[in-house]
Write a protein that binds this DNA or RNA. Sequence first.
DNA 1: GCGATCAGCC
DNA 2: TTTAATGCTGATCGCA
Length: 522
Amino acid sequence: VLLHDEVKQAFTEHRSVVCHDAKPFMRSLMADGIDLSFLTLDTAIAAYLINPSKSSYSLASVCGEFLGAEPTGSMESDGTFDFGGTDISAQSCAEAAVFVSRLAPVVLAGLADIHNESLYADIENPLVHVLAKMESAGIAVDTAALLSIKDRLTAETQELTQLLHSIAGKTFNVNSPTQLREILYTDRGLAPGKKTKTGFSTDAATLEKLHDQWPEFIGPLLRYREVEKLRSTYGEGLLHEIAPDGRIHATFNQTVARTGRLSSDQPNLHNIPVRSDEGKVFRTAFVAPKGCSLLVADYNQIELRCIAHLANDPGLISAFAAGEDIHNATAARVFGVALGEVTADQRSKAKMVSYGLAYGMEAYGLSQRLSIGVDEASVILKAYFEAFPNVKKYMDDAIVEARRTGYTETLFGRRRQIPELLSDNFRVRQAGERQAMNAAIQGLAADIFKIALVRIDKLLTEKDFLSRVVLQVHDEVIVEVPDSEKEVVGPLILDTMRGAADLSVPFEVNAAWGDTWASAKG
DNA sequence: GCGATCAGCC
DNA sequence: TTTAATGCTGATCGCA
């Protein structure tokens, strides 16, 4: 309190601030009404751009790497101020500051070496402030709705537990793979499927295969797994994260994902269920406050569009340019039928290939996904690459280039080192090849999305809108919009997303309004 | 405390 | 020949 004015003055008057991991610090200043808007360098993020594959970007580890020396004091970097005035904290803060100032020129030179100055200055640096605002804003939650969802799930897990105990003829911990193993493979004597490091697997794919051998047990078990996941992770988990203001303030990490994507924790809002109707109800608990609506806008097929552009594949480009249903158009080409003759089965297979494509999928993976034989999957993949030869060439070239240079690069210069390509281990090397194919694609999509996010925030701020971005999920942005601003802000967001980059294919953005995240998703 | 297993999303 | 999807986070178990 005593230092408040001095702090405010220091961070509003100085036109340049260098910081290591600025976002928590920005957030804590924001809570005090201080807007740290003159960040010029975040040394943690610079270190991440130079090599995004490190497990830690703590001040100590980055100093260790770039300076060959680490601060000796222990300074917690939770972004809060310690005005306790102990000599130890003052000492270690001072020491940290000295290290950050030594670090700055070194990481700046590192950015220059890999031509990442504008990736940093135009995208990552402004993004810090945008994310700090998103985290501070949080998203409103309907606690009562969440409680009732959780209660319903809890009742069902209890019933299922009883049922499973009675069928097994003993009580056991249904959550324990070890105890399940004993019941399935020892007591019941089922023929085990695949193995894990510690024994036979009990995962869903394995249980599906065993289902017919003991349906009255395995059926409820699969159901239990599903319900318990929802109950514990999303029911209990989300309830614990609701702040006193009735909102969830997740953290969006800018130095975690090796592809350039953001990640989310405390809680992770990037994996809220959407595929099953039952899981999707959790999205009804994410709401717009009174007088506001949620705008949910997401890029349609952004990674496939990135592939079309990067591979410069005429088939994909013309399908996107014509605004065709891309999976339908893909299926028509792959299976050699007319656009109107594509069956639902062909479309779904083409869709799975397209999704898998970005992940460097091989025949085996596709066969698992589609529940077909490996040979049939190979035929489909082969047909795909014949229909889209430039895509095949792009993937092959990506591996060769990454092996030659040791890294991949996105259109915006985001690098990812892939040392796995040189591994003696076949399995590791193959994983490296998949990463080499995937990194430039997923990374480009991430670059584009970040550009859109920064521009959206800039527009909303400059024009003094009350609308604010409250959440992002990789290719989707959720904006809380006062009803009076809907007509103006809606088109503004969509235009900004569509114009975030200029590729050889257009971007399509789906948008929906709603009172909750679920209804908006339609 | 930590690795392993499982499962949610893009 | 091998293995068996990119990238994440979290709940839980069970051993240390």
